[in-house]
Amino acid sequence: MKTLDALTRSENSFEGQKSYEKTMIVLRRHPFVLLVRFAGMLFLALMPLFLWAFLGNLLTAVGLRSVIIAAAALYALMWWYGLFYRITMYLLDTWIVTDHRVIDSQQFGLFRRTHAELNLGKIQDISVSVKGGMPTLLDYGDVEIQTAAADKKFLFEQVPHPHQVKDLIMKAHTQYVADHPHGKETHTEV
């Protein structure tokens, strides 16, 4: 069905994308990181069930059954919101590599968002760091991009397959330098 295509395919387009710019990869933290964040939510989901197991008979006996069910329904609403708040924060922390630039887009809460970008021609050095048992096992880690400016660094945190990401950025950088010999943009916006 064509109407459901939006849920299965995407050009990975984004706000502020140039007409001649092509997205090469969109990165987020490894899903395992999200799983760790879900641990607290799982506990919060099970808590009412434990309470009901211990206090259910007592509450039913004093005639509070309907009140408890209503309270549980309101609690479920809040839990659902909390769950998707975490998912949203995870999904909106993105790093985009296009054939012209690298974009670091971070979401801190609902009303604070940072957006930084780096021209591929300004990349000087890329380093990868995989620390810890789980990151080694699941192959995720940090990719740090050093720019020409001494203090400015781009950090891709806990991204999957960091070595492949580094290779891809290096390849894109080489291609960009070859296409833009004097660092000047050859494409024009349509």
């Binding site: 939006a6 849920l7 995407s10 990975n12 969109v26 998912i87 999904l91 909106l92 887009s105 968002r113």
Partner: peptide, 10 residues
Amino acid sequence: FGIGVAPKIA
């Protein structure tokens, strides 16, 4: 602000 398929499904 979502990019790709995952935010739409979410």
